[in-house]
């Protein structure tokens, strides 16, 4: 039989799991859908417009920057779509369209591609873009920009009001005019497009955990620790629930802090990272001048990830015993 040069030769293994990068990103997109639907209910069709503009800008920015840098195209992995959705979800529905485009360029070109593309950026692109927008256009991103409805309905014009996180403080507790816990849970309140509905975000999170796309460690430790600290700080279950359900905690803990590239790989590392996120979030919310601290805390912890990973390297097989023996020897 002559088959020379026809057979494919490659390194083992010769079978691979069915999972692909694109499949994982598709799962994240699916998990983000409920929050998108909720946003249209709360903020009207403009929310959809912002999401669409953000996604298209991100994909285009990725396409063009890869082209300009003469690298192979990566838009097929859908990660730019995910970044686009996440960016939109972190913006108020009143933001001018051109600012969305600007944010998308910052996220994809500056944060992601200039560092080498997917897997290489050291901070979360959508979050950094949001922070750049807050700093560059404070008026557009501050309390006055958030349109809320405070009622279940299609009220597109709504009322301009503070985000729920401006309506709670350590000194006064939950202030008058603050949305009820039920409103926060369902999402009929003011805030960024994708952050308002805790229910929708939780659905997405559960989907991601069931599909094994993310490990439950980061969201559970992050949200759990914030809950615990707030309970101690306020001494009141309602205030604790208000802090957990309101603002960007849910979207941050479930979708932003779990970004593969900018969170630790090891389980131990994930615990430390999530604890750090929770602590900083609470510090900012309780004592800082900003009402909200989720984005900043995640960015800060992003930067620490390489160090956390160094501290939490898994113990290589067969080396545990030696360490123990050494300890025992030292103890003797």
């Amino acid at each position: 039989m002559e088959l020379n040069n026809k057979l494919t030769v490659s390194a083992s293994p010769h079978v691979k799991s069915a999972e692909t990068t694109t499949g994982i990103m598709l799962d994240v997109i699916i998990a983000l859908l409920p929050a998108g639907v909720a946003s249209v209910f709360v903020f009207g069709i403009r929310a959809l417009l912002i999401i669409a503009v953000s996604v298209i800008s991100c994909v285009l920015a990725e396409f063009l920057s890869r082209k300009a840098m003469k690298r192979d195209q990566t838009i097929g992995d859908l990660s730019a779509v995910v970044t686009g959705i996440l960016l939109a979800y972190n913006l108020p529905s009143t933001i001018p369209i051109w600012q969305v485009v600007f944010g998308a360029i910052v996220a994809i070109v500056v944060v992601k591609q200039m560092f080498g593309g997917i897997g290489q950026n050291f901070v979360n692109p959508a979050l950094l873009a949001r922070i750049v927008l807050i700093s560059a256009f404070p008026a557009r991103m501050s309390a006055g920009a958030f349109v809320g409805t405070n009622v279940v309905g299609w009220d597109v014009d709504g009322v301009t009001g503070a985000t729920p996180m401006g309506l709670i403080s350590l000194a006064d507790g939950i202030k008058d005019g603050a949305p009820s816990l039920m409103h926060l849970f369902i999402g009929t309140t003011a805030g960024c497009i994708g952050e308002v509905s805790a229910l929708a975000l939780l659905l997405g999170g559960i989907y991601l955990i069931i599909r094994k796309v993310i490990s439950p460690i980061i969201p559970c430790v992050y949200i759990g620790t914030v809950a615990l600290i707030m309970l101690i700080a306020f001494g009141d279950v309602n205030a604790m629930l208000y802090e957990v359900l309101g603002g960007g905690l849910m979207i941050g803990a479930i979708f932003m802090a779990t970004d593969y590239t900018t969170s630790p790989i090891t389980d131990k590392g994930k615990v430390i990272y999530a604890l750090g996120c929770a602590l900083i979030t609470c510090l900012i919310r309780l004592f800082g001048s900003l009402p909200e601290g989720v984005s900043f805390s995640i960015i800060i912890m992003n930067i620490l990830v390489p160090h956390i990973e160094n501290w939490t390297k898994p113990t290589i097989f067969g080396t545990v015993k030696e360490k123990k023996e050494k300890k025992e020897a030292a103890a003797e």
Partner: peptide
């Protein structure tokens, strides 16, 4: 399929 060697011939 996990550890075997692909044959060229």
């Amino acid at each position: 399929p996990m550890m075997g060697m692909a044959l060229y011939d």
